[in-house]
């Protein structure tokens, strides 16, 4: 009997784990940034570049940048060239996680949030736009954008 309940407890724990796949890792804001990596490890700048260019990530719908290979760049937002000069990794991380914190009227989405938005489509409900690992890859890439 005791054994069975241990099993059940383990089962519930593992269910809870998979159910929380979309839960956000906790992060700490210090000043105007998030100094610690969301994953505890540095991101991969090359993967970050690919992500920024992917339409599904949505960055270049609004932004342009030093991306000669694509004509389809937006101009609703500042050019990302030199972003690594203007901002520290810590500031870039918070900007991606929750741009609205800097400017409540911004059109830039908060990429690491899973609530507080209205009428989210069925396939996206309860999920952040990007995962912690994707945020870290993009932060690593943006930090390399130096004039």
């Amino acid at each position: 009997m005791a054994r069975a309940s241990v099993h059940i407890a383990a089962l519930i724990a593992s269910l809870a784990c998979s159910a929380s796949a979309d839960e956000l890792v906790p992060y700490k804001i210090v000043g105007d940034g998030i100094p610690q990596s969301l994953t505890g490890a540095p991101g991969d700048a090359a993967r970050g570049r690919t992500l920024v260019l992917a339409r599904t990530t949505t960055c270049i719908l609004c932004h342009s940048g030093p991306f000669p290979e694509t004509r389809f760049q937006g101009d609703l937002a500042p050019d990302l060239t030199g972003a690594g000069n203007r901002w520290t990794a810590s500031q870039l991380r918070l900007r991606l996680v929750d741009a609205a914190r800097f400017n409540p009227d911004t059109i830039m989405p908060s990429y690491y949030r899973n609530d507080g938005v209205a009428r989210v489509g069925r396939n996206f409900a309860g999920k952040p736009i990007l995962s912690a690992a994707e945020i870290e890859d993009i932060v690593a890439f943006l930090a390399t954008l130096r004039d």
Binding site: T58, I107, P109, S110, V117, A118, R119, I129
Partner: peptide, 13 residues
């Protein structure tokens, strides 16, 4: 009204 995962309203665009 802002809506959707990208949290944008028609008026924003």
């Amino acid at each position: 009204q802002r809506e959707g995962q990208l949290n944008l309203a028609c008026t924003n665009c």
